[in-house]
């Protein structure tokens, strides 16, 4: 009985059946056939705006920044070719590079799963079956609207500052707290919470993804007597994997580049004592405050390699857990 239950949703939803082989949906027309030529032609037409953008405004700056990473460039005068110097300095003589890498890695590793878990949990809770859901959805989305606002520094101090909300609550229990935003041991923690707090974006994406799951699958499953948990495990979760995957990939990329929140909350310093020195904040400081844009570009390309590597791993791993509706 249990076995047949867990199989049932698949029977009801043949399209999503976990594919062993991630092939394309239909037999491929032979290369060079009329049909494949027509398809390629159409594909390029659909991509015209993107190609235009790529060559007109995207690729140039990227190539330029790669070139600049091999130069000594102050922004205010000419760039001078220095070969690998920037990269060598970065790896051998720059403790702040390692600090920023460490801070950022901790931030990504802790806050991304937390934020996604949170967003997914709330999305499930807010998906259906309760009155006033659109109200809750809106309320929960509000923090994300504030996340990058200049006011956030003040608001955050109102919660985690010496006289903030957290300490006010602790004081009831006779505990005297510190200023969490400005204590080197806790400052990063508050920024992680800030990141989790703005879970609205992935939540919305999850919500949209949940709505892509045809209700008929659930109907079929519940006729077969599958419980809520069973349905979640064999319908919701597998069908949501492309969206989970999307959020994971993008959150990793975005969190590694996280800048605004630390910039605003720490007044652009990454302090106290570099405890919130995010990688891109350090890069920004080097480029625009220290007038070392060549060095900043080298920092940027090291980050690109890290992010690209992780994204590559993500894509490879996705073969084992992401199920697409278009595969057979």
């Amino acid at each position: 009985m249990v076995d047949s239950l867990s199989l049932k949703p698949e029977a009801a939803a043949p399209a999503h059946a976990p594919a062993v082989k991630r092939g394309r949906g239909r037999p491929q027309p032979p290369r060079g056939s009329l049909r494949s030529r027509r398809e390629a032609w159409a594909a390029h037409l659909f991509l015209v705006p993107w190609f235009l953008g790529l060559f007109l405004i995207t690729i140039g700056p990227i190539v330029a920044s790669l070139y600049l990473s091999f130069t000594d460039y102050s922004l205010l005068d000419e760039a001078k070719w220095v070969g690998l110097d920037n990269y060598v300095t970065l790896f051998t003589e720059d403790p702040r590079f390692w600090t920023s890498l460490k801070v950022t890695t901790i931030y990504v590793v802790v806050s991304v799963p937390l934020q996604l878990g949170f967003a997914l949990g709330l999305a499930l809770l807010l998906d259906r079956g309760l009155r006033g859901l659109s109200f809750y959805r809106s309320i929960y989305y509000l923090p994300s609207l504030l996340g990058g606002s200049v006011a956030i520094a003040i608001l955050w101090r109102k919660i985690f500052g010496a006289d903030g909300l957290v300490n006010a609550v602790l004081a009831i229990f006779g505990i005297q707290g510190t200023s969490y935003v400005n204590n080197p041991d806790t400052a990063l923690g508050t920024l992680i919470l800030l990141h989790v707090w703005t879970f609205g974006a992935p939540m919305v994406i999850f919500l949209a993804g949940l709505r892509q799951i045809p209700g008929s699958y659930y109907e079929a499953a519940s006729i077969d007597g599958a419980g809520t948990l069973q349905q979640f495990k064999s319908i919701t979760l597998p069908l949501l994997t492309p969206i989970i995957f999307f959020n994971l990939v993008l959150e990793v990329i975005k969190s590694f580049q996280s800048f605004t929140q630390s910039f605003i909350v720490s007044n652009g310093t990454g302090g106290p004592t570099d405890s919130t020195l995010f990688y891109t904040l350090y890069l920004y400081t080097k480029g625009f405050k220290d007038y070392e844009m060549g060095y900043a570009s080298a920092l940027a390309w090291v980050l690109v390699i890290i992010i690209a590597g992780l994204t590559g791993v993500n894509f490879l791993a996705s073969k084992y857990w992401v199920f697409y509706g278009d595969s057979k």
């Binding site: 394309r24 491929q28 494949s36 398809e39 390629a40 159409a42 594909a43 390029h44 659909f46 991509l47 993107w50 790529l54 995207t58 140039g60 700056p61 990227i62 330029a64 920044s65 600049l68 922004l75 990939v249 990329i253 580049q257 800048f259 990688y279 891109t280 890069l283 920004y284 480029g287 625009f288 844009m293 900043a296 570009s297 940027a300 390309w301 980050l303 690109v304 992010i307 690209a308 994204t311």
Partner: peptide, 27 residues
């Protein structure tokens, strides 16, 4: 749709958002 070099273009598409904003401002 299928077309030649699709994987390369797709990778490039994702790659373009990996470069931190601050180093492409000037170019």
């Amino acid at each position: 749709l299928n077309f030649p070099l699709k994987k390369l273009w797709f990778a490039l598409m994702l790659g373009t958002i990996m470069l931190p904003f601050h180093v492409v401002i000037v170019p």
